[in-house]
Design a protein around this nucleic acid. Sequence first.
DNA 1: GCCAGGCATTAACATTTGTTAGAAGACGCT
DNA 2: AGCGTCTTCTAACAAATGTTAATGCCTGGC
Lengths: 239, 239
Amino acid sequence: MLESLYLNLGQHDALSDAEKALLVGAMTFERHFATGQDIVASGSRPTYSTLILDGLAARYKVLEDGGRQFTSLQVAGDFVDLHAFLLKTMDHGIVALSPCHVVFADHSRLRAITEEAPHLTRLLWLDTLVDGAIHREWIVAMGRRSKTSHLAHLVCELFVRLQVVQRTNGMSFHLPLSQAELADVIGLSVVHMNRVIGALRKIGVVSWANHTVTILDWHKLQEIAEFDPTYLSMTREPR
Amino acid sequence: MLESLYLNLGQHDALSDAEKALLVGAMTFERHFATGQDIVASGSRPTYSTLILDGLAARYKVLEDGGRQFTSLQVAGDFVDLHAFLLKTMDHGIVALSPCHVVFADHSRLRAITEEAPHLTRLLWLDTLVDGAIHREWIVAMGRRSKTSHLAHLVCELFVRLQVVQRTNGMSFHLPLSQAELADVIGLSVVHMNRVIGALRKIGVVSWANHTVTILDWHKLQEIAEFDPTYLSMTREPR
DNA sequence: GCCAGGCATTAACATTTGTTAGAAGACGCT
DNA sequence: AGCGTCTTCTAACAAATGTTAATGCCTGGC
């Protein structure tokens, strides 16, 4: 059941069978969320962390004027709120952007892992560190890239992350985001989001229809995005 | 010597004397960096993590067109590259924005801490999680706040963080950043950065001269920024 | 005290991005 | 098939932000 988690953690360093067993042992019940449902509410103090088995979810904050900003996208194999294990209080919400199948890991059992399984603890820590690295890359994209480059970068990142957990299909992947939602990822108005998608299409590096993105020219896309996957730490080495 | 680190980690949960001793034991040599010097180079694979004892530093990335974006500001008591302990390869650089006094913690000794001191490990992990929370707040600011609000938010955040490590002076703090550097924090041109600072001054919530920021109206500043310090996890509770 | 260079500030203009509004298309429901 | 609703896409205009350039200020070196 935890295949996607093994793929995710395992891309950084080898996972032993004992460690896999500990992860399985940390899981409690499963649940399905419908598109648009909140998986974790802002301000809550969860006693479990949520692992996505399938689907797409996002962290977000809402401002007083109603503006919404997504701060991360989470795919299969991602813990959406592993940080809440130590941060305790959620300062943001997490919403399902597609039907999501998730499983909950008890904080008390995660704590036991930190007491007894140092290597696995480091891998879980690392998982949150990669989260941070992705955040930094997003900050760079928001601050200093053109919007076209930003979108191209997002496509590169999602493609690579989805590939790791075997959710790509050739050079295509499913991206169940409306343009309004995408605008809340990039930090744009819907109208301009539409212009930017149009620009990428016009250049001919991606086709984008029916919530399916197909990369037509990976090399050129990567060039536009200045995409360097180093920040995703995809090399397998002792950690 | 590690007072600022104790203040930083200790704001989240109590630190025992044994834990303080472990931290002291992890430290190797100290060093001073001049303003503008790189503390950690992008692409390097450090075998130690760097703790700031005094000074201001920043993580940054540089794009092909020469554009620079800071992804975080680091103050006394912050580990600037604790994440490199597990990420291994630096995907960004770290530069001193003022004269910096730092001390290096050996990765092998940090690793020993993860093997033997679970609670301290969780506190170090937490430190990197707060880093991530700050990143998310920056993403929200870049994507959905007005530039004035973004700057106000930054001032609020820095004031609170500096207060924790006792680097404020009443309602003032030292901010040794040129407007060009500040522009690389917010993601603006220098000219517009100047306009935005002018706007905050005009509203009368801060005075800003000689690299010293004085908050004249905290309540109003917080309101403009929609600043809610929850994300900094400043409550002391079992972790 | 004088000079050079960096920094802050302003102006004028160009470009990007947002807003409002509406038309056309897609999609589920009955 | 028909309907309503959400989504995509466009247009026209408004506002925010970037660019280039010039000015004056301040500070450190001589």
